[in-house]
Design a protein around this nucleic acid. Structure first.
Lengths: 232, 232
DNA sequence: ACCTGAACACCGTTCAAGT
DNA sequence: ACCTGAACACCGTTCAAGT
């Protein structure tokens, strides 16, 4: 009953529905709607990054005047909230016939979460700064439910959920940022090697040149899960 | 020999040194210098946040014209880099007479790291996006050295370091962001309770109202350290 | 109900000068 | 060597109108 609480459906264009026959995409600009705005925002963010999203540019891309957006949306922040939630829906683990390992379930969901954010590199750094939309809450719920089923004590449940959140956020934000500057990373490692006497350990392990991001993510996640539910 | 490679000392005002007697702070504005600029930037960031730092406002606060900064600094990004590094120096653990537990060493350094960033709430979200300065590298080196001493296998060392980095970054960025909006958090939890049938687990554990940030940080860190160096 | 242009109060940075 | 103001090409958002 409390299903359609979000604003997503309330103001969208009904023009094509009621008085006219549902003219099949009349070739011209199909006029504004929340859905179109959010979709265009995601495209623009993917193409140009966080700084690339500008109300003027967004309107341009939609063939509208800059101020037309403000009828559908309260502020630029709202556009960001909606774009973020749009990008984080979870389809769930693939259904094998058999009941799934709790650990496989958690790993699958978190790797998918990370993958979603890396596909939209602006999203990771944005997520901790904005309100938690329904898609994010659903992921947290799945996490809590699965850990609980795995036997994590009630008193440890919140700490377990947040530690996984923290790990995934930190890993993805870092990965997304460093990705932009392979050049800088190599330069940093070069400087680090020059200064070998100051940083012998991490110069030796070539910390800044380690390229196996996916493997390192999985490995750290295993460390953490080992600690959260030891011996399972 | 490669010690003073950073730009920090190269262009600073020598006015008070050579031709004049070292006039003891002549009451007027002491003119610009990299040090003064960085110090003012940190103050401004602390007071107004990331969006509050503006080249014009920064110059204003220093009693200079807006463009004067650009003689000392290449861009706004450079100001951010320097402010960030200035804020992350590590004094090391307090020296007790006895050799320190490796685990206590790691926990101390990471809790201090987190505390530094929370004292300057703009810093956490900035750190993963910018180059790694010497203070940050020194912390990573300490981490690697300590884990290695604790017996973590060479092959696991980078993964161990990065997983701790990820955890600390995620935790601190999240903490710093949520701090700004207790109101929103309460509202989110209220909505979450209303929608109890959709999110029964995290509604039950009151995930969004959990206020013991320090305790949760420590608990998650213990999970992770248990996984990185099991049984020590 | 939906969209618009002009205007306001800002940005970071380039440039040609000043001292 | 150090600092400056004017100017350029932008921002998000308010407002008073248009249809």
């Amino acid at each position: 009953m409390a299903a359609k609480r979000s604003s997503a459906g309330s103001r969208t264009s009904r023009r094509t529905g009621a008085s006219r026959p549902p003219a099949p995409e009349p070739a011209g600009e199909p006029s504004l709607s929340l859905e179109r705005i959010v979709a265009a925002a995601v495209e623009l963010l993917d193409a140009q990054g966080l700084d690339g999203l500008t109300m003027r540019r967004l309107a341009d891309r939609l063939g509208a005047g800059a101020m037309s957006l403000y009828w559908h949306v309260g502020s630029k922040g709202e556009v960001l909230d909606l774009a973020l939630d749009a990008v984080l829906a979870y389809r769930g683990a693939p259904q094998t016939g058999r009941a799934r390992d709790w650990r496989a379930e958690v790993v699958h969901m978190l790797e998918d979460w990370r993958a979603c954010m890396l596909r939209h590199p602006w999203s990771a750094s944005l997520l901790p700064r904005r309100a938690l939309g329904p898609n994010i809450l659903a992921r947290l719920e799945l996490l809590g439910e699965t850990l609980s089923r795995a036997g994590v004590a009630e008193a440890d449940l919140n700490a377990g959920i947040w530690s996984l959140w923290n790990y995934v956020m930190g890993a993805t934000i870092t990965r997304g940022s460093f990705d932009l500057s392979d050049e800088d990373r190599a330069a940093a490692q070069r400087r680090l090697t020059e200064l070998g006497q100051h940083y012998p350990t991490i110069a030796g392990t070539r910390l800044l040149l380690d390229d196996d991001w996916d493997g390192a993510f999985r490995k750290g996640l295993d460390f953490l899960l080992d600690g959260i539910a030891p011996g399972r």
